[in-house]
Design a protein around this nucleic acid. Structure first.
Lengths: 223, 223
DNA sequence: ACCTGAACACCGTTCAAGT
DNA sequence: ACCTGAACACCGTTCAAGT
């Protein structure tokens, strides 16, 4: 034990493990985006040869799947069964889902494309489906309702983070491009809405859409 | 002119243009996915040196943006102002949007991340915003309503095309993974819903969610 | 103006070799 | 079991050279 600690100190790093690789990979993804996350860079960042990674992760695809599970694991589903109405618990869980996505905006493309393969990753889906079933939807409709809610949440956050007006770095040139295109004759609605699009409150927009969706879904329950 | 045609026939190909590059790029994207779409492969496919592409497209990023505009241009917004109720026109336009995305599933990641920079690309947004404004929403709320609808549509289609149960090639192994994870004790809702998830009718699921969302949004108009 | 070939700085991954 | 270095088949892009 003492010797192990000593060797670590000598090497200046902890031992390589799958968990440590995924953690650092997610950090790199958050910092510099998906294109910058290469096996070679990740290895260099961990102070190790590129091929060392392949002892803990079969390939880059598996690395991406691991990151997906890591992010999905951050979702807080503890209060999905709370509240008077079924929509209260769903709202809480979906809000946590959104918070996680906003914390890892570059991970959205991974979550949208990589399959879930571990119990950890399926737990939020189980919680959501169970809450929807408890609300009274039949099993088939419950699946549809789940996809409607998850689709809305993921698509909305995706729209937000990829909106160039949200990024201070390219804001000015985006405004310029739009100012030239949005003539009042050809694009009346867009030129009118420019000021509102600029200072768009995405939190409020998300709440509006989610409330409307849940209200509409709940109405299908009464009939 | 005759000489030009003759030279074409000799070379066995039409002249290289931006439009032809983008068209072939989208075809390759549809066939083999985003990872397989490289500048070098695209050039080889067009029977030309990799560097020839750079006379018509500044870099790969611009190629991706061009593909995005090409796909957005396929959306049919002609009937966005039709129907008795504002939701009728929106439903028609959103349905066309969904059809286009399902026709080019690999383009979704591009549409979600690349900025729109030409009038062509902004036209569907203009049509949507105008219809929402005409329905009676104030300019600020109209932007929120637009994002809610577009977010739902994009997220829902994205969930559908990335669902491993939809892909015949990896269907069996996905079922096997799930069968092992979904014990009735730990994942009661998921194990109950397995048969319904397998033969999930995404068209019906989309309609359910969109109708619910539009109904909920319309309710905010009356108050 | 448009295309090419060589070159540079990167990739993911295999394989043989080390401990 | 875990790590390394060399190698292979790829990338995107720059630059000088051709027409």
């Amino acid at each position: 034990m003492v010797q192990a600690v000593h060797r670590q100190a000598e090497a200046g790093r902890e031992p390589l493990t799958r968990a440590r690789i995924l953690k650092r990979a997610l950090e790199l993804l958050d910092q510099d985006g998906l294109e910058a996350l290469s096996m070679r860079r990740l290895a260099g960042d961990l102070g190790v040869s590129p091929m060392a990674l392949y002892n803990h992760v079969p390939n880059k695809e598996a690395l991406h799947e691991g990151i997906t599970e890591l992010v999905l694991g951050e979702i807080d589903i503890s209060s999905v069964a709370s509240g008077d109405h079924w929509t209260d618990g769903i709202k809480a869980a979906v809000s946590s889902f959104r918070d996680v996505l906003l914390r890892h905006p570059n991970a959205i493309q991974l979550i949208q494309t990589k399959p879930i393969t571990t119990p950890e990753g399926f737990r939020p889906i189980e919680a959501s489906l169970a809450a929807i079933r408890r609300a009274g939807f039949d099993p088939e409709t419950a699946v549809h309702v789940h996809w409607a809610i998850v689709g809305f949440a993921m698509g909305h956050v995706s729209s937000q983070v990829s909106n160039p007006l949200q990024d201070p770095e390219i804001l000015e040139q985006s405004i310029e491009v739009r100012r030239q295109i949005f003539t009042p004759e050809e694009f009346p609605a867009l030129s009118e809405s420019m000021p509102y699009a600029l200072e768009c409150d995405f939190d409020a927009a998300f709440d509006l859409g989610l409330d409307a969706l849940l209200q509409g879904l709940d109405a299908r329950l009464q009939s």
